[in-house]
Simulated scan of single mutants.
Amino acid sequence: MTQTFDPASLTYDANGLIPAIAQDHATGEVLMLAWMNAESIARTLATGQVTYWSRSRQGFWAKGETSGHVQRLVEMRIDCDRDCLLMLVDQVGPACHTNRRSCFYTALREGAEVEILKPMV
């Protein structure tokens, strides 16, 4: 079944935001979590460059606009409750602002935090 997508059909929080998980489309690696609103979703779909809503800056954030570490959208998926997005992306360079491939670089192992990814050179 196919139907025309309407961003208003999604379930947003009280601030008009929806969580968006970025995942490498080729490897399945989870890269980061960020937030989107209806306009950032529309911009992403129109341009193919993933654009988030920055809660700290209170503005749009086209991933890679300053760093060059662009996320190009391969496919956007909507979860069953329509309250979370999965962005399958082609990631150029690190996804994390700490210069790591993924923001999920700390694992909990045997009660301790272990850094499992080093910054990219």
Results as ranks from 00 to 15, higher is better:
Arg72Pro: 13
Ser54Lys: 05
Gly68Phe: 07
Thr44Gln: 03
Met36Gly: 08
Met32Val: 02
Glu65Lys: 06
Asp24Tyr: 12
Ala20Thr: 01
Ile21Lys: 10
Val50Trp: 09
Gly48Asn: 04
Arg57His: 03
Thr27Ser: 15
Leu33Ile: 15
Ser40Ile: 11
Gln58Gly: 10
Asn37Val: 12
Ile18Phe: 15
Thr44Asp: 00
Gln58Ile: 05
Ala62Ser: 14
Asp24His: 09
Ser54Cys: 04
Ala42Ser: 10
Glu65Met: 13
Met36Asn: 01
Gly64Gln: 05
Thr47Arg: 05
Glu39Ala: 15
Arg77Asn: 09
Thr27Asn: 10
Val74Arg: 11
Ser54Trp: 07
Tyr52Met: 02
Met32His: 00
Met76Val: 02
Gly59Ala: 03
Thr27Pro: 11
Val30Phe: 05
Tyr52Ala: 09
Arg55Ser: 14
Leu45Ala: 06
Met76Phe: 04
Val74His: 11
Val70Ser: 04
Ala34Val: 08
Ser9Lys: 03
Lys63Cys: 10
His69Ile: 07
Glu29Leu: 12
Arg72Trp: 07
Tyr52Glu: 05
Asn37Leu: 11
Met76Tyr: 09
Met76Cys: 06
Ala38Asp: 06
Leu10Ser: 08
Gln71Pro: 00
Thr11Met: 06
Thr44Arg: 00
Val70Asp: 07
Pro19Arg: 14
Met76Thr: 10
Ala42Pro: 13
Ile41Gly: 12
Asp24Glu: 15
Val30Glu: 05
Ala46Trp: 11
Val30Cys: 13
Leu33Asn: 13
Thr47His: 00
Phe60Thr: 01
Tyr52Gly: 06
Ile18Met: 12
Ala26Met: 15
Ile78Lys: 00
